[in-house]
Design a protein around this nucleic acid. Structure first.
Length: 444
RNA sequence: GUGGGUAUAGCGUAGUUGGUUAACGCGUCAGUUUGUGGCACUGAAGACCGUGGGUUCGAAUCCCACUAUCCACCCCA
């Protein structure tokens, strides 16, 4: 009935008390990327439909049945981005960024849209943190990008996330492999499940990933792509493995991971967790050396990855990871009576001008209720202003943690006095705590 | 697109042989005498029991449909 207060299927609201989780992930991700030399790029939410058809691939599920395509005027159609790579590469080409030297390294945090049936870790509007590196053909670049993804996951405090890598070769060796694979599965065609019989024609590589017990058994002896790589691709994969070892990054070679977007070549990888249900891929990416040329640019090697922010946050919650603490109110100015209220307005204005997080009563609460409220919002200090204080020009500054009160002048020196007390308190609090924790770390 | 589960106040739940004013916890608000929070106590507000139909003297409780949501397949972040 009241459909107007109902969010569209597969979308999510982030309520005020939950945003800090998002801030945590966004901050860690962008800081880490910056540290690796990636700059942020911002691109439109929708693109010409053709861009996704050509890059993601016209036979993929994403393009065939999951795109939100709209036509505003009738003569051209636009599509809400189902992923970030296509638009990013388009922007880099269009703005001539690729003429500014290599490698170009960019990252983004944006929303993506796919018309799927929602379930745990799968939404119609979801958010991705993604990185793209353009112009580096060397396998060092692959390892570097993987290492960036790994750092983000580590810094978020995530545990037990497995890195799976594979190479799906270049178009040349993949053609060979497809032939071999198809020939192999043809023998067992009757025993394969229904979807896999379809896959046999459409995309035989997907059969390798089937969950059906019988198909799994059959797939076990199927040819492995790694045996069909050409010399160059094979060498590239060897170097990648070597580089990962140098970086102490553990990985599993998983010949069954096959990315579902057509633009991938050679290296593909996934970071997988078992903590959030069936949709456990928390990060997926790989190399796409052919994409830029395909979009009309000069042939240029490139690679990247995307991370699902919702999945990251889900995993963090399930693993009990720490999030950044939301900022707390520094000082609450409580007041009683008109004079006190006026003074509160004045003082809060000044405190805020000096950068403090200051609040006062806006809804007409009694003194006791104001104290409760101050406590609830986690105010560090409270000042109470009544007729007495206004008359004498001094008030009590109460430390809400210790309960101790000291006198404070209400004249022009107020903000400076508060500032002194505030920073002195912070020192005893945080500095000492962090020093203590360093100590104990040193002793262990 | 295919399958299964669930739908009771802002949130989490109880309410199962159908029977008068639907209960509890958290949260919100107000109080516990004189101008100071966290604890405790008291009280208040807040639910047409997802929607529509049916069975019945009577349904949150039984039946049907619809819708929403969750989980899984598929696909992927």
């Amino acid at each position: 009935m009241a459909a107007i207060t109902q969010r569209p299927k597969g979308t999510q609201d982030v309520v005020p008390n939950e945003v800090y989780k998002w801030h945590t992930v966004e901050q860690v991700a962008s800081e880490t990327a910056s540290q690796f030399g990636f700059k942020e790029i911002r691109i439109p939410t929708f693109e010409d439909t053709g861009l996704f058809v050509r890059s993601v691939g016209d036979t993929t599920d994403v393009v065939q049945k999951e795109m939100y395509t709209v036509s505003a005027t009738g003569d051209s159609t636009f599509t809400l981005r189902p992923e970030g790579t296509a638009g990013t590469i388009r922007a880099l080409i269009e703005n001539g960024v690729l003429n500014e030297g290599f490698p170009q390294k960019v990252f983004y945090i944006l929303s993506c849209f796919r018309h799927e049936k929602p379930q745990a870790g799968r939404l119609r509007e979801f958010h991705q943190f993604g990185c793209e590196m353009v112009g580096a053909a060397n396998a060092r670049a692959d390892a570097d990008v993987i290492s960036l993804a790994k750092s983000v996951l580590d810094r978020l405090g995530l545990k037990g996330i497995e890195l799976n890598i594979n190479s799906i070769g270049c178009p040349k060796c993949r053609a060979e492999y497809h032939k071999a694979l198809k020939a192999y599965f043809e023998q067992y065609k009757d025993r394969l499940c229904e979807t896999c019989q379809e896959r046999l024609e459409k995309n035989p590589m997907r059969i390798l990933d089937c969950k059906s017990a019988e198909d799994k058994e059959i797939a076990e002896n199927a040819p492995v792509i790694l045996d069909y790589l050409c010399d160059e691709c094979s060498e590239h994969f060897e170097q990648l493995k070597n580089n990962l070892k140098l970086m102490n990054i553990e990985y599993e070679i998983n010949p069954r991971i096959v990315r579902g977007l057509d633009y991938y070549t050679r290296t593909v990888f996934e970071f997988i967790t078992t903590d959030i249900g069936a949709q456990g891929t928390v990060c997926g990416g790989g190399r796409y050396d052919g994409l830029i040329e395909q979009l009309g640019g000069k042939p240029t090697p490139a690679l990247g990855f995307g991370m699902g922010l919702e999945r990251l946050i889900l995993t963090m919650q399930n693993q009990g990871c720490d999030f950044m603490n939301p900022e707390k109110c520094n000082v609450y100015i409580a007041s009683m009576g008109e004079k006190g209220e006026y003074k509160a307005i004045e003082l809060v204005k000044k405190l805020r001008e000096e950068g403090f997080f200051a609040e006062y009563d806006l809804v007409g609460r009694g003194l006791k209720a104001q104290m409760k409220y101050a406590d609830k919002i986690g105010a560090g200090f409270v000042v109470v202003l009544g007729d007495n204080e206004i008359e004498t020009g001094t008030a009590k500054l109460k430390n809400m943690k210790t309960g101790e009160q000291i006198d404070i002048n209400l004249d022009d020196s107020f903000v400076q006095l508060f500032s002194d007390v505030y920073f002195a308190d912070m020192m005893t609090d945080e500095t000492i705590q962090s020093m203590m924790s360093e100590f104990s770390l040193g002793e262990v």
